[in-house]
Amino acid sequence: MKAFRYVRVSGGAGDVGKLVRKGATLKAGGCDLLDRMKERIAEPADVVAFGEVQNEYLRAIAATPDGLRIGALVTLAEIAASKKVAAHSAALAEAARRAASPQVRHRATLGGNLCQHTRCGYYRIATFPCWRRGADVCPVLVDGAVQDTAGVFDNGECASAHPASLPPVLGALGARVVVRARKEREERAFEALWRQPAKGVHEDVALAPGEVIVAVVLPPLPARTNVAYEAVRQRAAFDWALASCAARVTRDGGKVKAASIWLGSVAPTPRRAVAAEKALVGKAPGAAGFAAAADAAVAGASPLPGNTYKVELVKVVVRRALERAARRER
C-alpha cells in the first residue's frame, strides 16, 4: 500500500466532502478501498476518515414520517440485526445478513456497499489491462477470458457485474438516496445513483466530486405489499452472488397491482427489470405470471460464451423471489 496521509475531520459529511473535492479519498469501513489500495488500483495521497465521524444522522436507523432512514455509516451487521429494518422489510435484513462474513459485516457500511467498485477479477488485479482503468479493451470480452461471473446485460464495453447485495432490495423498496451536496442534503431517486461504465472511470455511482452519500430513506410500503430477495452463490456463505433478484409485489384482489423487480450481479450497475414488471402487473400472482416475468427479465440479455448459464440463473432467481414475495409479508 502506498503511504498516505490520514485526515480526521471534527465536523460531518460536509467537511468530508470539502476534502474529497480537493482530491482526498473518502474511507468508511474500508473493506473495498483498502483492498484496492493494497492492489495499487487506488493510490490516494490523502484519505479522509469518514468512518470515524461521530454523527447521529450518519449512524442511526430512524423511523421518520418520510419512512425508515438508514445512515450511511450503519454497518451491514447493524442492518441485519435491526428490529426496525426487519419490521420495514425482512428482505433487506436478509440481504444484509447474507452479504460477506460476520467479520466484513462488522466493518462494511451501507454507504460503502453502494459505493464499492466492481469485483471483476480483471479490474482488481493491476497487471491486467482494464477498460475501466483506461485500457482500450475490456479483457473479459477477449476470447479465452474467464467470463463466468461477468455481466449478461449492458456488457458491450465493460462486462463487469455489480456485486453488491443491498442495491437490488433498496431498488425494489423504492429507496431514495440522501446525498450531502455542496451546500445541503439532497434526495435522489435510487435509479439516479448509478452511471453506465465509461473508459477510465472506476466508480459505478454518479456522484459529483465531493458529494457524499449520508443516508438512504425507505418510504412506507403500500398495503398488501410483499418484498423478497433471492440470490444464488457458488458457495452458500461468504461469496458474491452470481445472480440476485429483489421483488416487490402489491396485490389487489386476485391480481398483481404493482411490481418492482431489481436484479444484481448481472450488469455493471444494479438493474431494474422493467419488462418483467410489465409482464407481471395485471396477472394473477401465480406460476404462469411468474414465468412470464422471468422470461421478460432476460429479454435483451447478451451473454458471453462463458456465461450463457447466467441467463437461466436470472430466470430462476426472479421466479423464486416472486414466489416468496407472493407468500410472505415484507
Binding site: 503511504a3 498516505f4 496521509r5 490520514y6 485526515v7 480526521r8 475531520v9 471534527s10 465536523g11 467537511d15 468530508v16 470539502k18 476534502l19 495521497a45 490523502d46 479522509v48
Partner: peptide
C-alpha cells in the same frame, strides 16, 4: 469555512 481536521502521516505517527 475550513474542514477543521487533523492530518496524520504519511510518515510514522
Amino acid at each position: 469555512g475550513g474542514a477543521g481536521g487533523a492530518v496524520a502521516g504519511p510518515g510514522p505517527v
